[in-house]
């Protein structure tokens, strides 16, 4: 067994004890008055809490209607059901197409002190396009998925917004052209239906 040398032993085995003659004793505090009670360790009760979990907190804060609204009936799960007027399908996870809101917090956009200003005619030269359609795969999502949502969106547009927008009439022309096409399509459908009806009538007459 290893033994420590007298010098190497770090711990002082004989601490400096004060002589009894030098020690000055502080008078101990007065002992508590002798209690006749046996409950000498009894502590005071904590003050009663005003609001605890034993009460119905939803009712206390008037959130019953909110509970009934969200938990009473089934809430539709998809994001598009919350934003029905938004064109396109937006139920894909944000991380897949880089549109996640968390991403905005994690990598905040660079915001300079420069003010946002409309582009000058010289700058707009960079946006010159050749007439004609673009390949199918690059077309906007809303065109591929159909115009049901888009029509809903038009209903929500306030009348005064078109007043501010000088291009609104021109855009309406675009829309009208498309509607006309649809009308034309509807006409064709009607014709087909009429033909079917006539065929049925002929068959009935023959029979």
């Amino acid at each position: 067994m290893m033994e420590f040398g007298a010098n190497s032993y770090p711990f002082d085995p004989e601490p400096n004890m004060m002589d009894e003659s030098e020690a000055s004793f502080v008078a101990p505090p007065d002992p508590p008055p002798p209690s006749t009670s046996l409950m000498y360790l009894l502590k005071d009760l904590p003050p009663p809490a005003q609001m605890t979990g034993s009460t119905n907190l939803l009712a206390h804060f008037g959130l019953e209607s909110t509970y009934n609204k969200f938990c009473g009936k089934k809430v539709k799960e998809s994001l598009s059901s919350f934003l029905p007027d938004l064109p396109g399908v937006n139920n894909t996870p944000g991380r897949e197409d880089g549109s996640s809101l968390r991403g905005v917090i994690e990598k905040p956009p660079i915001v300079g002190s420069k003010e946002i200003q409309p582009l000058s005619s010289g700058m707009l030269m960079a946006f010159r396009l050749h007439p004609g359609p673009i390949p199918e795969q690059y077309r906007p999502i809303q065109q591929q998925t159909g115009g049901r949502r888009r029509n809903k969106h038009h209903k929500k547009i306030r009348p005064d917004t078109s007043m501010h927008n000088p291009l609104a009439p021109e855009m309406e022309e675009f829309e009208i052209k498309k509607h006309k096409k649809r009308k034309h399509e509807d006409g064709e459908k009607k014709k087909r239906k009429k033909e079917k009806r006539k065929k049925k009538e002929r068959e009935k007459e023959r029979s």
């Binding site: 582009l119 946006f127 291009l167």
Partner: peptide, 23 residues
């Protein structure tokens, strides 16, 4: 959305409309 429509089938005289839409 409207910009998307214009660009997807760009009309011959659509440059002014496009410029105004961008602005």
């Amino acid at each position: 959305r409207r910009l998307g429509i214009i660009v997807s089938d760009f009309p011959p005289q659509g440059q002014n409309v496009l410029n105004q839409k961008v602005n």
